[in-house]
């Protein structure tokens, strides 16, 4: 059974007129269908402005869909909740709390019944998991971008969500830091096997991490392309991947879907493969 299911989800925004630009309704997402298995790592690749963050906000329950349904374990979602932990594009660490306190806030919210020492232990566990044990008492402003995003990852994992949602978690980092964090996420994920939906605009990142890749067509009215499977064991290494035929195929397909804007095969239409 699918743990997370989106059926015909659509979302429009009402844009107020700005200067000479006319206002009106803008359809950002149209007819999004997605079914995610437990323990699956799904990447959604799309250009900026195509509606990726909107999709994550819909799944998180931070905004409401205009049409269609979003089911978590068969139940329609009702607003946001820690069962769908989010790692936001802009980190969103609370600047007045230190690393420990930022993560503890999440542990306390989902495991309020535990004793204080258990909660502290759990908080430290997740901070150590992202290799930040030495920075527990640092404030976010004292950390580099990469370290901040590690804290955000620790906080997301600490929510112990059914589905972990990541919105372009590494896009603001320099290439080297990004590479390190990607491989670290690959390691952590192969240990925890959380169900993950990750948004990215980096195809190589998707290939390194995902079981399944979907492309999002350019908006307005963006929708998902066909599923592209990445067959390779986890955790993967960048070097080992570059030689794998299955990965090269997935890479080609993702690129092609992105450039042609291919959407789901419609009944009766012919789909040319290769």
């Amino acid at each position: 059974m699918a743990i997370l299911e989106l059926n015909g989800v659509g979302k429009s925004f009402v844009r107020s007129s700005r200067g000479k630009l006319p206002g009106g309704k803008v359809e950002v997402l149209r007819d999004i269908n997605l079914s995610i298995r437990e323990n699956e790592f799904v990447c959604i690749v799309g250009r900026s402005g195509s509606g990726k963050s909107t999709l994550i906000s819909l799944i998180a329950g931070l905004i409401e869909a205009d049409s269609g349904s979003i089911l978590l374990e068969g139940q329609p979602i009702k607003g946001p909740g820690p069962d769908r932990g989010v790692i936001f594009q802009n980190y969103s660490l609370l600047p007045w709390l230190n690393v420990f306190e930022n993560v503890y806030l999440a542990v306390d919210a989902v495991a309020g019944k535990l004793s204080d020492s258990d909660k502290r232990q759990r908080t430290e566990h997740y901070i150590n998991l992202v290799n930040l044990g030495a920075a527990m008492t640092k404030l976010p402003r004292e950390l580099s971008g990469g370290m901040r995003q590690r804290v955000a990852v620790a906080r997301g994992l600490a929510m112990d969500p059914k589905v972990l949602l990541l919105d372009e978690p590494f896009s603001a980092l320099d290439a080297l830091t990004r590479g390190t964090l990607q491989e670290e996420l690959a390691r952590i994920w192969s240990e925890t096997r959380k169900t993950v939906v990750m948004i990215t605009n980096d195809i190589d990142e998707a290939i390194l991490l995902a079981d399944t890749i979907y492309t999002l067509t350019p908006g307005p009215g963006a929708t998902l392309g066909p599923a592209i499977a990445v067959d390779a064991v986890h955790p993967r290494g960048r070097l080992q991947l570059s030689g794998l035929a299955s990965c090269q195929k997935a890479r080609r397909e993702t690129l092609r879907n992105l450039t042609t804007g291919a959407s789901r095969p419609v009944a009766g239409a012919t789909v040319v493969i290769h």
């Binding site: 931070l62 946001p80 820690p82 989010v86 936001f88 802009n90």
Partner: peptide, 11 residues
């Protein structure tokens, strides 16, 4: 973004 953290955690 700060308020959203609170909403996701259901504070």
């Amino acid at each position: 973004e700060y308020l959203n953290v609170g909403r996701v955690l259901k504070l």
